[in-house]
Simulated assay, not measured.
Amino acid sequence: MDAMIALRLRSNGHGRDVVEETIRACAPTIRDPQSGRNWQRYAERTANYAFGPTGDRDLERNERYRELWRKIERTEEKEQPQVRMR
């Protein structure tokens, strides 16, 4: 699942650092805290996948979903509450 999230983030224009940090911050929240996993290294490997040759190939394979991913992300942005600065 994290690999697909990383790929979607890349597809929507997020950089490698953002993808890595997102995976590092969020992946542990849905898993057993006693897993003993090195989350930093896990996030690095996941980002390496998304921005490496295998990620390139998988982006091509999922080309038909790219516009849908963009629409979903734009919709999510619009649904966020607006904060006005005075």
Rank of each mutant, 00 (worst) to 15 (best):
Q82M: 06
L9Q: 09
P81G: 14
G36F: 03
A6G: 11
E21H: 09
L68G: 10
P33I: 06
D58Y: 11
D2G: 15
E73N: 12
N12T: 15
R70H: 07
M1Q: 05
D56M: 07
L59G: 00
T29F: 06
R41N: 11
E67D: 11
A3N: 10
N48Y: 04
V19C: 03
K71S: 13
Y65R: 01
T54N: 12
I23V: 15
E73V: 05
I30Y: 12
R70S: 11
R45I: 05
A25P: 01
P53A: 15
S11H: 00
Q82N: 07
L7A: 11
R31V: 09
R8I: 13
T75K: 13
E77C: 07
S11E: 03
R31S: 04
A27V: 04
E77K: 13
E63P: 00
A43E: 06
E76L: 15
G13E: 08
D2K: 01
F51S: 01
D2F: 06
N48V: 01
R8K: 12
D58T: 11
R10W: 02
A50G: 07
L9K: 09
E67V: 08
G52Q: 02
L7G: 08
C26H: 10
Q80I: 13
Q34T: 12
R24W: 04
L68R: 12
E63D: 11
Q34C: 07
V83I: 15
V83N: 09
E79Q: 14
T75E: 14
L7W: 10
P81L: 15
E73Q: 13
A50C: 09
R8H: 02
S11M: 00
